[in-house]
Nucleic acid binder design. Structure first.
Lengths: 332, 332
DNA sequence: CTCAGGACTTACAGCGCTGTAATGCAGCGC
DNA sequence: GCGCTGCATTACAGCGCTGTAAGTCCTGAG
């Protein structure tokens, strides 16, 4: 049988509660007592029973992490880091896949969960600002990512997309490219990443040509491949660089370019965004904006832990970096 | 306050235990009583408290899923399906990343977990057969994947790698290729996937040339790129097809080929293995063996649930299919 | 030397649920 | 009409922990 608190208490010659205090790092335990208790814990191999602790505390020790799809590399790598960090917060992470559908996201916020959750970290796609506003305020919520509007009504962790878009575009300009296309899912072309792109052009004294800010109409590589392909096929001159709002779009763009005989990066340099892990196995490997996922995870969990019902939403920013690879500087 | 079992009992005019029986679908409850209880549950919006149930039952409702890295697309997509299936089994899935390190994998099996686990599903890399054999038999364990040896001492779910390797190679042979190279992490060249490759060659009346069964020495794309690159650079004639034991190796191989002016698939057709999700954004998209991940997840969880200490290890096989894409049949 | 007050420790109830044993109550055979 | 059987239901202890209130012991000021 697994040792319990009482067993340790008996072995150490103290009360159950004192052992509990030691385990939970409470103050007001004499050093000598603590040592005796720790020795007993060690000797018996005691580990606390989480179910009992949660029952007594009225919490579950479980938080939910909701992403559109776990098998999308961006979310997988984010989830991986979230997992690492949650461990040090003492949380078990329950994963959910929403498919980006509003009803699935909403269900998580409103539904009574079989296991009461201590909080939710969600990367929303379908959720509206009202949905977030009308949620149960007793269930801590932290939002990730870039779904405009929602972030005003709950704690939010992200990176400075505008600045990142600017840095990515500046990299292209520094390589001497002057005819830089932007590719985003759109049609909402007010995306912050694209605004950063505009900032960079403006700062370089160039005028933004809104005709080469293309909306792909979707997030998949194929969407970018089709959009850019049609654009090229209709006789437009090829750009000498492409800034894509996500890595998938960048990869799709590279397909469209290469299939038409253009060389990347010699003819067209391409920058992506997200740094999804593909193990440097694509050709060419992708220059991209890499969000600091460890920081995102840590900030999100801290915010979740420290959230109090009724307090004002916090907006937190994690750092990012530009990772330069073959798609802008070439091979070798 | 959240309604409890007693609240429902009071509302329905029965005992707490009867409500419990209804909730848990027990027999011996009169239909009329059941209806009354269900109405009360519905009216109060009752949901069971998992922490309390687990405490009373001595289980935790949590299983662990351990994979080397969650941000590797293969494991991410497997984890995604595992999550879907676990829901219908009433399990919360606790994810773990082992990095493929034996000590991390072993720790999961031997360590006392803060939350007692109801079972572990693990994709082992470092674990030895002895480690598996000497584990705590009271903790149900199901192994996934292809770490030879371990599967004899615990329930195991996989696909028929040999048959799959054969099917993949046959596809290359059917395209008229005759000089088919095999690429595997090695140096253990008894890999079942490669044996399937040998089977296919033998069935076609071709002799296996063990000189073109190359060991990459690692799982990453770079490993395959370097291995194949060096082989080509040292003057060997290029094969007209490559069967790679994983998609990453296939992608690395494609890099090595294309960077040397060979066209895929015109000069060299390439088949991978695993069907990791890259959204059809690579160029060319990869022909590959796609394991049925839903089946794998379901079989694994069923096995976990039905496992009894001391019973003989079961070996379960999930189906697979060959997905034909550009890397063998070309573009368009 | 006394006593207030802080440091440390303990006893005990109770978190919400389930398992077990016990009880109630028909219907049945004799 | 009695005991028996088996279904339906109940009472209650207890899962292992933590919060609270109530101690006990010691120190230093008066």
């Amino acid at each position: 049988m697994r040792p319990r608190l009482t067993d340790v208490a008996e072995a150490a010659g103290v009360s159950m509660k004192t052992v509990s205090n030691v385990v939970n790092g409470a103050e007001h335990v004499r050093e000598e007592t603590r040592q005796r208790v720790l020795a007993a814990i060690d000797k018996l191999g005691y580990r606390p029973n989480i179910a009992a602790r949660n029952l007594a505390q009225g919490r579950s020790g479980v938080i939910a992490l909701a992403v559109p799809q776990l098998d999308r590399p961006y979310f997988a790598s984010l989830a991986a880091r979230m997992l690492d960090e949650a461990e040090s917060f003492g949380w078990i992470v329950q994963f959910h896949q929403t498919g980006g559908r509003r009803e699935a996201e909403l269900a998580l916020l409103t539904e009574r969960h079989p296991a009461r959750l201590d909080g939710i970290v969600m990367s929303p796609l379908g959720l509206t600002a009202e949905d977030v506003q009308n949620r149960d305020p007793s269930l801590p919520l932290v939002l990730l990512g870039e779904k405009a509007g929602t972030e005003h009504h709950a704690d939010h962790v992200g990176i400075d997309n505008r600045e990142a878009g600017k840095v990515a575009t500046e990299h292209l300009l520094e390589l001497g490219r002057r005819h830089v296309m932007a590719l985003a899912p759109g049609p909402r072309m007010d995306d912050e990443r694209i605004n950063g792109y505009r900032d960079a052009l403006a700062a370089a004294g160039l005028q933004t040509d809104e005709d080469i800010v293309l909306a792909t109409g979707g997030l998949r590589g194929q969407d970018a491949e089709r959009t850019l392909g049609e654009w090229l096929d209709s006789g437009h001159p090829a750009p000498d660089a492409v800034f894509a709002a996500t890595d998938w779009l960048a990869m799709g763009a590279i397909r469209a370019l290469v299939l038409r005989g253009l060389r990347v990066p010699q003819d067209v340099a391409v920058v992506g965004f997200d740094d999804i892990p593909y193990d440097l196995a694509t050709l060419p490997t992708l220059t991209t904006v890499a969000p600091d996922r460890v920081a995102i995870a840590r900030l999100a969990l801290q915010a979740l832990r420290d959230q109090r019902p009724g307090s004002d939403p916090k907006r937190l920013q994690a750092p990012f970096s530009l990772v330069v690879r073959e798609s802008t500087t070439g091979i070798g």
